[in-house]
Design a protein around this nucleic acid. Structure first.
Lengths: 229, 229
DNA sequence: TGTACATCAGTGAACGCGCGTTCACTGATGTAC
DNA sequence: TGTACATCAGTGAACGCGCGTTCACTGATGTAC
C-alpha cells in the first residue's frame, strides 16, 4: 500500500474537478457537453483537459459510469442498514433510494435513463455498472421468496419469454429467482423508472405537487404487483 | 370552402417537407437539430428555411406538437375500430398502439418522452396536445367502470394525493373517474412508458429479443393492476 | 546530498468546421383595376 | 384581357460565435545515480 505520490494525488483531484464541473454542465447542455466550457470553468486552456481525458466521449463515458456507480452505492448503502429479515422494507428502501438519488441528480438521471446520447456508443464498462442496482433489487426479491414474504407467481409466460428470462437468470452473479417473479419484477422496475421520469421530466405537470405522497401510493401499487406481504 | 391558392398549397407542402427532413435528422442529432442541415437536405440555402419557421425552436415545437398529434391519432383510430362494449380490448388496443407507434417513431418518442431538450421551454400548445392520448386512455377506463368491467379500487390515498387527483378530475374535458382508479392508472401509464423507454433505449439489452411476447406479459400485469376483467 | 535527466501539466496558437440568424437582393407568382 | 403593383420564395454574403482536437513549447516536479 504505497502512499500515492503528490502528483498522482493532484491528478486524481483534477480529474474529479473536471468531472464535477462537467456534471454541473449537464444541467445546461444536456448530453451535448462542451469540453471547452468545462476547461473554462476549471480556469484552464481547453487543450489541457486532454491530459486527463482523451476525448469528449471519454469524459462522457466517465460521467455515465460514475453516475451508475453513484446511484448503486447510494442504494446499496441505504439497503444495508435495514435488517436482513425485513425484506419488505428492504425492497421499499431500494425503490425509495433510487428515487431520492434521481431527484438529487436529475441531470445525471437524464444522462443515464433518458434519450440515448446521439452518436455515443456506450462501452461495455458502462453497461456493466448499469446493472448493479437492478441486481440488488433482484437479490432482495430472492430473499423475499426464500423467506416466503413474496409468493412465487404462477403466471403463464410465452415460451420465448420464459426461455429468455431463464437464460438471464443463468448468467453468473444473478440471484436464483423464479422466472415468473423476474417477469413481474422487470415490469415493476420499468414502472419505477417511468414514474421517476414523469416526475423529473415534468409529465403529469399541472397536477401533482406532493410527489412524495404520490410516490408512496405508487410504491404500494408496485408492492401489490409483486405480491409482497 | 375556398380552394387553396397554388402558392398556399406549395407552402404547406414545403413546410411538410421541412418537418419530415427534420424528423429524419432527429435520429442522428437528437434534439440537437441543425437548421442548416435541414436546409441542405431540402436543397435550399439555409436562410430560406426562415420563410417557414421563425427559429430553430419553432421548428422543434412544430415537431413536438406533430409528434403528440401523430401518436394520438394513431391511438384514436385504432381504438375507434374496437366495439364500444369491449372495454378490455379497447384498453389493450390503446396500450399496444402507443407501443407500436413508438417503435415506428423511436426518435420522435425520444423527443417527446425522453430527456427534455436543454434550453427548450415547451409552449402551452405542446403540453395540450401531449395530454390527448392519456385522455383517451382515461375515457376507456371510465367506460370500464360504467360497464362494471373495472372495479372501483378501494385504496387508501394520502389526503394531498386525493385532493390533487380530485382537482385534476374536475378539469374541463376530463372523464369522471374514481380517484382511486386514476391513481392506479397514472402508475400503469408510467409503467407503459417506462417499458417502452427500456425497449427503445436499450435498457434490458442482452436479454430480451422477443419484445412482442415480453410486452404481452407486461400488458397482462398492467391489466391486473387495474383490476380489469 | 547533489546533479542530470525524464516525466508531466499546462500554454497558446492554429486548423477546419458548423452553427443560428440577419439583411438587402432578385425574380417569379399572384391580385386589383 | 392586359397592365401595374404587391406579395412572396429563395439567394448569397456576412456576422459573430463556439466547437473538438492537434501540436510544438515551457517550466515545474519527480527519479535515478
Amino acid at each position: 500500500m504505497t502512499t500515492e505520490s503528490p502528483r498522482a494525488v493532484a491528478r486524481a483531484e483534477t480529474i474529479e474537478q473536471i468531472k464535477s464541473i462537467a456534471r454541473r454542465h449537464l444541467a445546461v447542455d444536456g448530453a451535448n457537453l462542451s469540453l471547452r466550457a468545462v476547461a473554462r470553468d476549471l480556469g484552464v486552456v481547453s487543450s489541457a483537459v486532454y491530459r486527463y481525458f482523451a476525448s469528449r466521449d471519454d469524459l462522457l463515458t466517465a460521467l455515465i459510469i460514475d453516475g451508475y456507480l453513484s446511484m448503486a452505492e447510494a442504494v446499496e448503502q441505504a439497503e444495508a442498514t435495514v435488517p436482513r429479515r425485513d425484506v419488505v422494507k428492504r425492497w421499499d428502501t431500494v425503490c425509495r433510494t433510487v428515487r431520492t438519488w434521481s431527484r438529487e441528480h436529475p441531470d445525471e438521471f437524464g444522462l443515464l435513463y433518458g434519450t440515448p446520447v446521439p452518436g455515443y456508443a456506450a462501452p461495455q464498462d458502462t453497461t456493466d455498472s448499469a446493472q448493479r442496482v437492478l441486481m440488488l433489487a433482484l437479490e432482495v426479491l430472492r430473499d423475499g421468496v426464500e423467506r416466503e414474504v413474496i409468493p412465487v407467481p404462477s403466471d403463464r409466460l410465452p415460451r420465448s419469454t420464459r426461455a429468455e428470462l431463464t437464460a438471464i437468470l443463468a448468467l453468473p452473479g444473478l440471484p436464483r429467482l423464479p422466472v415468473t417473479l423476474l417477469a413481474r419484477a422487470m415490469g415493476v422496475w420499468a414502472q419505477l423508472f417511468g414514474l421517476i421520469s414523469f416526475e423529473l421530466f415534468g409529465r403529469y405537470r399541472n397536477g401533482i405537487d406532493d410527489w412524495d405522497a404520490f410516490f408512496d401510493v405508487q410504491l404500494g401499487a408496485m408492492a401489490r404487483q409483486l405480491g409482497v406481504r
